[in-house]
C-alpha cells in the first residue's frame, strides 16, 4: 500500500493547541491534557480534526482519545463534546460533527470536555453514558399501539398546523446537549420535546396525562436537575427546539395532576 499516493497533496494546514479531558474509565480520576495538532484545514470538521490527532497519537504509541460519533451529518445525536464551554461548540444550530475548523482562529487553544451531568456518567475520556434518555422515553414516550392494530392512516386527520408543531418537537435527536449546557443539568427540553410531539397529535391524546406524569417522574428519578429557565438549552440545541415546549410540558403536567 506504500504505492498508494495520497489523493491530494497535504495542504498546509493550521496548528491548534487542544486541552482535552482524559479519563481512563468510569470511576477513575480525570484531567485536562494538552496536545498540539497540525495540518488542519478550515473546512475540516471538528471531529475530523480529532481523527487526525488520534492517528497522530496512535503513531506516537499513545492511546487515542475516545469520543462518540456516528452519522457525522447532524442527525443521529451520537456526537457530543463541550467545546470551550459550549455544548456542540460555537456554531448555532449545529452538532459537533457539523462544526468546521474555520470557526476557530488558526493557532488558537481549544478546550474539549465531555457532557457533564450525574445522569450522564463519563465512560472514558469524552464518551458519556446517555442511556438515561432511553429510560425517560421508556417511561411513556410512546403511543401504546401494537403492530397490526392501526387503522387506515387517513382515518385520523391531523391538521397541518398540528402536524408541523409535532414535527418541530419531533426533530429532537436526543443528543443531550440541552442537559450538558444547562447550569442545572436539567433534561427538561428533551423530555418536553417528546411530550409535546405526542400532545399535538390526536394519536397522543388517550395517554396524554399518564405520559407526562410518568416521564416527568422518571426524569426526576434519574437525577437530572430542575429547570431555571436559563434558555441555554435552546441556544445549543442543534435542532433549535424552543423552550416553549417546556412551558407546554408544565401546562400538561399541571392539568394532569390537577384533574387526573
Amino acid at each position: 500500500m506504500s504505492k498508494e499516493e495520497p489523493i491530494a497533496k497535504k495542504p498546509q494546514g493550521s496548528r491548534y493547541t487542544l486541552r482535552v479531558w482524559r479519563q481512563a474509565g468510569k470511576d477513575k480520576a480525570g484531567g485536562l491534557q494538552t496536545y498540539t495538532v497540525n495540518g488542519i484545514i478550515p473546512n475540516m470538521s471538528f471531529l475530523e480534526m480529532l481523527d487526525v490527532l488520534n492517528e497522530q497519537l496512535v503513531k506516537e504509541g499513545k492511546e487515542a482519545i475516545a469520543f462518540d460519533s456516528d452519522c457525522r451529518e447532524g442527525i443521529c445525536g451520537m456526537c457530543s463534546l463541550v467545546i470551550d464551554g459550549v455544548a456542540h461548540g460555537p456554531h448555532a444550530g449545529c452538532t459537533t460533527c457539523s462544526v468546521r475548523m474555520r470557526d476557530f482562529p488558526a493557532g488558537s487553544t481549544i478546550t474539549i470536555e465531555p457532557f457533564r451531568a450525574r445522569a450522564f456518567p463519563v465512560i472514558k475520556d469524552l464518551v458519556v453514558d446517555r442511556s438515561s434518555f432511553d429510560q425517560i422515553i421508556a417511561a411513556g414516550g410512546y403511543v401504546s399501539v401494537n403492530t397490526g392494530a392501526a387503522p387506515d392512516a387517513n382515518c385520523i386527520p391531523v391538521g397541518k398546523e398540528a402536524a408541523d408543531k409535532a414535527m418541530d418537537a419531533a426533530a429532537c435527536i436526543g443528543c443531550g446537549a440541552c442537559v450538558a449546557a444547562c447550569p442545572n443539568a436539567s433534561a427538561s427540553l428533551f423530555t418536553a420535546a417528546k411530550i409535546t410531539q405526542l400532545a399535538m397529535l390526536p394519536q397522543g391524546q388517550p395517554e396524554r396525562k399518564k405520559r407526562v406524569v410518568a416521564m416527568v417522574e422518571e426524569m426526576d428519578r434519574l437525577g437530572f436537575g430542575d429547570c431555571s429557565n436559563h434558555g441555554e438549552c435552546e441556544a445549543v440545541c442543534p435542532k433549535e427546539i424552543g423552550i416553549n415546549h417546556i412551558a407546554q410540558m408544565r401546562r400538561d403536567y399541571l392539568m394532569a395532576t390537577l384533574a387526573p
Partner: peptide, 19 residues
C-alpha cells in the same frame, strides 16, 4: 404507513388533515 401514523410519526399533511 398506518402503523407509523398510529405511533405518532408526524408525516407531512395537507391542510385538511390528510397525508
Amino acid at each position: 404507513i398506518d402503523q407509523c401514523a398510529a405511533q405518532g410519526v408526524p408525516f407531512a399533511r395537507e391542510y385538511g388533515g390528510a397525508l
